[in-house]
Structure formats: structure tokens, C-alpha cells
């Protein structure tokens, strides 16, 4: 990719592919400049000297939270499939997972 805070049309296409978004060409044209403006704006954080600053990934200093391993009822098969776009024989029916050549 190019210099920080600048995004090309090819990069938008690449990002959309990584994010599994089948954008149409109009969307690519529209989002490109918008993403560019946003990236320029957020790049401001690079002004700050943070060499000695540790990152914060989470507001709470919680580690290794566990709960006791007790058996409890989960969803039934019917409940689990209730929102499925397609189901067959008590299972989720999905499009083929492997490519034509596999």
C-alpha cells in the first residue's frame, strides 16, 4: 500500500476483497475519497511521541477470567437452526466451500 493516510482505488478494491464485500464500481468510486479523508484525519495520532507508552487494549485490567465447568442446557437443534438462511437434515446448508479445482 501507499504512503500513510492516502488510499488508491486499487487499495479500496483490495480492502473490500479482504473484508468480503462485493462492492460494485460505484461504491468503490464513492468510498475511496471518503476513506482517504478519514485516514488523513486519523493519521494525526502519529504526531504524538509514544515511544515509551505501553498500549491499552482494554479498559479493565482483567486476566484469565474463568467460570466453573458446569453442564447446562444450550440451544436445541431447532433453536440453533431457527435463523438459518438454509437448513437441511437438521444441519446448516451452505454453498460449496472448496473451489472448482479442489
Amino acid at each position: 500500500m501507499s504512503e500513510s493516510g492516502s488510499i488508491t482505488r486499487d487499495e479500496v478494491v483490495h480492502l473490500a476483497r479482504l473484508a468480503r464485500l462485493a462492492l460494485d464500481p460505484d461504491e468503490v468510486d464513492r468510498f475511496g475519497p471518503q476513506l482517504d479523508v478519514i485516514l488523513h484525519a486519523v493519521s494525526r495520532i502519529q504526531e504524538l511521541d509514544t515511544a515509551d507508552v505501553p498500549p491499552t487494549s482494554h479498559a479493565l485490567p482483567l486476566t484469565n477470567v474463568t467460570r466453573s465447568d458446569e453442564v447446562r442446557a444450550g440451544l436445541t437443534q431447532e433453536q440453533a437452526l431457527s435463523g438459518a438462511p438454509a437448513a437441511e437434515d437438521g444441519r446448516f446448508r451452505v454453498p460449496r466451500i472448496l473451489g472448482e479445482d479442489a
Binding site: 500500500m1 500513510s4 486519523v42 509514544t50 491499552t56 487494549s57
Partner: peptide
């Protein structure tokens, strides 16, 4: 890009 963006943002979060 991770360090320049997400990584840096997490450090700003600390500040």
C-alpha cells in the same frame, strides 16, 4: 500498517 494505526491508537488510549 498495524503499528502506525491500531498500535499507535492503543498507545494514545493509554495517554
Amino acid at each position: 500498517y498495524y503499528d502506525a494505526y491500531y498500535g499507535q491508537a492503543q498507545k494514545v488510549r493509554t495517554l
